[in-house]
Design a protein around this nucleic acid. Sequence first.
DNA 1: AATCGTATGATTGTATACAATAATACGCGA
DNA 2: TCGCGTATTATTGTATACAATCATACGATT
Lengths: 236, 236
Amino acid sequence: MTDYSVNKEVTDKYSLRGRVFHKLREDILNGKYEEHEELKEVAIGEELGVSRTPVREAFRQLELEGLIKIIPNKGAYVTGITEKDVKDIYMIRSLLEGLCAKLATEYITKEQLEEMEENIYLAKFHADKGHLDQLAELDNRFHDILYEACNSKMLEHQLKDFHQYVLRVRKKTLSSANRGPKSNEEHEGILEAIKAHDAQLAEQLANRHMINAYENMVQNGLHEIYANKDDNSSPK
Amino acid sequence: MTDYSVNKEVTDKYSLRGRVFHKLREDILNGKYEEHEELKEVAIGEELGVSRTPVREAFRQLELEGLIKIIPNKGAYVTGITEKDVKDIYMIRSLLEGLCAKLATEYITKEQLEEMEENIYLAKFHADKGHLDQLAELDNRFHDILYEACNSKMLEHQLKDFHQYVLRVRKKTLSSANRGPKSNEEHEGILEAIKAHDAQLAEQLANRHMINAYENMVQNGLHEIYANKDDNSSPK
DNA sequence: AATCGTATGATTGTATACAATAATACGCGA
DNA sequence: TCGCGTATTATTGTATACAATCATACGATT
């Protein structure tokens, strides 16, 4: 059956345009390009071995994702993520993950519950062993399950977008050794609340989980990753 | 002439692509195309007197706006919004508009405050006169100001996206005569809270404002607009 | 030397040609 | 008639050619 569900993650990875899009997004998020650096159609095209057409279409998409800014007849410029952006994203995520957890108490399936439990169990193991990469992977997966469990394509999509967006930061953060286990404990709390169908508690814990993640990130020196001058975080 | 250029400083209106984009968006929002109707590149191009290239680029943008869904090698289809989607959007917007109002108590500028006051004053006038179109336009603008006043590009962008998304529904709803004035009263309350720097109250009122809007919409028969079967609200 | 205008090159915007893929129609054999 | 493979057509995907616009350099004029 055809899936008409509203979904921005439709940019397929197999067309040239899709490949260009994903490649550029990754490169921008990974810091390959400086902020405000100009992206030239021919240069990108040559680098990836494609013509300007798919590059241009990818540009249009990146623009709407907010990763580049296109000035007509002039060029495309990387916008990047400021510290302020990261802060804002976590602020938003905090609310939405809370909503998501709340909804999950009602809609989560048995299978999802089981996978969550397994996830947490495994995470404990890897935390003991110091397997940071696996820990990060499990953390990603935990949140994905949660997103899928809220029974809302809209919310799921939003959260996945944000999740994706701060992936690089999160990776760094979880790698700070002591956050990993702490994060996993918080996951466990959320899971317990969901199992108990305690919507309010689940919301609250998921809420707090995001705030903690952000605060830990700040402590570990967010500024080193996103050394940015012209963010608009300064109040009047 | 109805001008929906609430946002998207990025999509210029003077290039062919920009014109195609705006035209198609308006047509979709105004219901010129059926849900799930296929948009063909050549047909659109001929209708607007342009080649496929700008049409394709406009498609890519419309896809990310969530107005159409592109299936690779197949076609572009107008996205349907299900009742469930609308409900979810309002649920999310309720939270985020609350956050936005809360932040605005701290960051709003004098100019924005003044425009809000003018907006509300004007809305009263048009409400008395029964000018529903102007009322809808002012309502749009009120929320846009609020979005811009929160000092968060991220949040602003998200809210504008959602706002855009439910424009069709909102238009219909505000036209239900009695919601317009009520909505404006709620705007006034939010503005007062912001002026008083009462963050908690502003959040609460903005929150409630969304819930009220949604409930009114349901009463007025959302199902008539979005009579949709294949929504993804699966029973647990 | 400073300023303006113009020529030149670089870059994006658009149109079109061609390739790849998917949808449809048709005919053949059982 | 039904099933299946193939030919045909329609439609999208990509590459390229050409037009429009912008940036730069340079020289003429003051």
